[in-house]
Design a protein around this nucleic acid. Sequence first.
RNA 1: CGGGGAGUGGCUCAGCCUGGUAGAGCACCUGGUUCGGGACCAGGGGGUCGGAGGUUCAAAUCCUCUCUCCCCGACCA
Length: 596
Amino acid sequence: MHRWSKLFIPTLREAPADAEVASHKFLLRAGYIRQLSAGIYSYLFLGQRSLNKIVAIVRDEMDKIGQEFFLPAIHPRELWEESGRWTTMGENMFRLKDRKGADLCLGMTHEEVMTSMARSEVRSYKQLPQIWYQIQTKFRDEPRPKSGLLRVRQFIMKDSYSFDLDEAGLDRSYKLHDGAYRAIFTRSGLKFVVVEADSGAMGGSQSQEFMVYSDAGEDFIASCPKCGYAANVEKATSRLEPVEEMEATGNGNPELVHTPGCAAIADVAAFFKISPASDIKCVAYMALKRGDKGKPDAWHGVAVFLRGDHQVNETKLAGVLKAAEFRPMQAAELEHYFQGPAGYLGPVGLDIAKEPIDGGLTVVVDKSLEGRKNMVCGANKLDYHLRNVCPGRDFGWTLSADIRSVNEGEACPTPGCAGRLTVGKAVEVGHIFKLGYKYTESMGAHVLDENGKEVRPIMGCYGIGIERILTAAIEQANDDKGFWLPPSIAPFTVVVTVTNSGDESLRKTGEKLAEELEADGLDVLLDDRDERPGVKFKDADLVGIPYRINVGKKLSSGIVDLVTRGTGAMVDVRIDEAAALVKERVEEEQLLAASF
RNA sequence: CGGGGAGUGGCUCAGCCUGGUAGAGCACCUGGUUCGGGACCAGGGGGUCGGAGGUUCAAAUCCUCUCUCCCCGACCA
């Protein structure tokens, strides 16, 4: 039995000034964590206890579908050179040298190590499929760590990798993970949603994220309350309402119009008395194409055209262009590609590249421009616009694709669904991803199939952020006094608060009750500190323990209080029935979570 | 990397503008009283004011450089 009087649980009355989000504040105040450096935290007794419970759930479910490994955290450069990621990971990778001067890095993910294992050990199709996982520390030198444990530079990840003979096999491995992840998050008591995620830039074919709605989150997800459609806005689409086209003027051909001072969309729309949906917006980028082996990186001009009321989704754009990086085009570059100034850029008369980012100006139009008529656009000339512009007739493009972001309130993309999309913020707790042949190909892994022919295994990769489960759980259940965790991941299920430790009979009864609870298989913390009751109640409310039993003044009539932290409900319970009741409550709560 | 903010005892902060004995509340230690929602009284310990350099008789305070942390953006899981 754990006695609070002997433990190190450094609770704080006030949150340190630099904590902003609820989980960060409370993890610090409750004595779960302490910061060592930006994005680097120590986990103290309560924090480690909770993380251990999360890890146990993850391990329990993962063992049903795969095998646990434990891979090195320090990797040789050569391994990452093989996949090409020694370069592409850039500054996010922690790098170091050993005493001989050899380059090493700290593992930020383990596709390379796992693939090298498969490459050197797996020889036959008979050995497939394989699902290998590990629970291990990852190191990523984030440009901006933030929000306590939400975005950190060192964290624990459950990562797994599947190797299959073919796509049907990958599909099975992927579905196994989908099931395991749903079980893990359910048992962890999270209210999560599964959303379609972006996979374009990585070349994968399918990907889902497991999200917990929270304002602390960094991702936005679009969802339809009617049909259940949900997708990361990086990936989400919507159905657009038909636009009322403008009447052509003059002979219907593009017409130069003097529009002094109308650089912004709103000014242009007002000048022509049109909706921004009839204006063509231009966003000009320079896109970085990573050089293939030996070739240097190069920047190429990219002009994106879309409706005036839409926004460019750079994730989608990166996906269709396979570009590594974007930056806004600068004035000299605008002059070079458009011969015109910002604010008056347009698609007519441009010298268009045939292939995406391969010299010249890559012109990307959003799909929603196809088939539109009589639009307004910049004339690539200061203070002039064109009208009567028809995409396809008056200008062409390198490629046309969905590269816009959806907005709240747009129509759900599911055929036949009349719902409207809502957009909310969420924390990503897990991600499953069909990788394809990227690593087995670049690193040369193969097995013999039943015909004795060499074939490449196909891979999937799957991740869970262990600390993020704790963080998300706190974000979803807190108030001004503290937080309460689901019993399955709380450091203790119940705290027995002896209101006055100076009173011998209270203390003895409390100890006895704690022993009973423990005998019932519950994790019990006995608050036997020599503190006033108020202090003990405040601490108990703060530290995330879902149930509390007060052993105090009602004991003379054989009664203790059972307090449910989440609801604040306090009920009188006969002392000899208390243990059984708590156990029942915990079991009910877990059943309830499972039915979610 | 761009923009903003902050570094003074364990925590929250005042003092800086206008240079002159380093402060408050909480926490901590000792003794006493108290004991159902962060008690009270008395006594006590603890800070090279992020660091370096400079100005000055004198620097937490003024100047220069630098480090660190937080927030927004970019980036990313």
